[in-house]
């Protein structure tokens, strides 16, 4: 904790845009909880509203067919270097809605994902742990230019393991 805080002081804060897709909005609630208690600031992340100001794109919720164009436009509008974080089961693969006619799969089918934070929804602690992992990796490289290879870290499990509520009856 103190190590990350010290590093956060040495480095300029990175800016992050939170793109909330469909889904139940639970991931959004948990990410907002981090905003409310100031822990996002403490690790050196600044929440912004314009894609052009953002280094990180945090996607939560389902990316439906209705929303895909807007998500791609947001990603295109972001300046290089840029990284994408997928938080929660819906962003990962559509989650419980992945078999729905309106859902166009996980965000990784459309854009390069640098970090996946599993959970339905991930707890605020899990979101923070994931973001810290990415920030530490970015800060370990002296010039933030090369985008890191897609990382799928083993994070502490969320309060409840994600139940596959899709068409297969095997997981429920």
């Amino acid at each position: 904790m103190s190590g990350t805080a010290a590093r956060a002081r040495r480095h300029p804060p990175l800016s992050m845009l939170h793109l909330q897709g469909g889904g139940c909005g639970g991931c959004g609630l948990e990410i907002e909880a981090l905003l409310a208690d100031g822990r996002l600031d403490a690790v050196g992340l600044l929440l912004v509203e314009a894609p052009r100001h953002a280094d990180l794109l945090l996607v939560s919720g389902t990316v439906g067919r209705n929303l895909l164009d807007a998500v791609l436009a947001t990603w295109t509008a972001m300046a290089e270097p840029k990284w994408l974080v997928a938080a929660g089961a819906c962003a990962l693969d559509g989650g419980p809605f992945r078999d729905g006619y309106a859902v166009s799969g996980g965000i990784d089918q459309h854009l390069p994902v640098s970090l996946v934070i599993p959970g339905c929804p991930p707890t605020p602690d899990a979101v923070l742990a994931g973001l810290r992992l990415l920030l530490d990796a970015l800060r370990a490289t002296p010039d933030l230019s090369p985008p890191p290879p897609p990382a799928r870290p083993a994070l502490p499990p969320a309060a409840l393991p994600h139940r596959r509520a899709g068409g297969d009856s095997s997981g429920g």
């Binding site: 909005g25 389902t62 439906g64 209705n66 929303l67 807007a70 729905g100 006619y101 309106a102």
Partner: peptide, 11 residues
């Protein structure tokens, strides 16, 4: 509205 539509009823 409609950007968050997932088709819950259909599923």
């Amino acid at each position: 509205l409609g950007h968050a539509h997932r088709g819950v009823v259909g599923l």
